[in-house]
């Protein structure tokens, strides 16, 4: 079956992590767009609808949750599933994030790239 590759937007300020996430998702067959911070990711997402967004929580200019809030208000990515990568899993309650901000899934650092790949595939097609 021949279908167009699914698109994913990655927002991560740590260059090394951004690269390895991109590498893992490419391995799963995604077409990857990467942004070095939340503001840049938002600029890209305004002009394009993605099948999935993977974002770090702690980033300069715009945090992951702030980015999700903006995406949910946008015309392009209001229903795109979002995976939030966080180093502070203890503080943010998964339920609150899901219900209040529309975060689809969370992954705590350090995480396994294959786990992220599996989660990404699971999220595809799931509308918020």
């Amino acid at each position: 079956m021949l279908t167009a590759p699914k698109t994913v937007l990655i927002a991560e300020d740590n260059a090394a992590l951004r690269r390895v996430i991109g590498f893992a998702l490419k391995g799963c067959g995604f077409e990857v767009t990467a942004a070095p911070d939340g503001a840049e990711a938002w600029r890209i997402a305004e002009g394009q609808t993605f099948d999935l967004v993977v974002t770090d929580q702690q980033m300069p200019h715009l945090t992951g949750v702030e980015l999700v809030e903006q995406l949910r208000q946008s015309t392009t990515n209001a229903k795109t599933p979002v995976i939030l990568l966080t180093a502070k899993g203890m503080e943010l309650e998964a339920d609150t994030l899901r219900e209040q901000y529309g975060v689809s899934a969370m992954l705590h650092k350090p995480f396994s790239p294959s786990q992220l790949g599996a989660l990404a595939e699971e999220m595809i097609g799931q509308l918020v």
């Binding site: 390895v20 391995g27 702690q58 180093a87």
Partner: peptide, 23 residues
């Protein structure tokens, strides 16, 4: 926490990628 987890996340992710990837 952030300073510890970020390098750890990288080390884990790269090591796993190296170990599993054959491409």
């Amino acid at each position: 926490t952030h300073e510890l987890r970020t390098p750890l996340a990288n080390i884990k992710a790269y090591a796993e990628t190296l170990a599993m990837g054959d491409m």
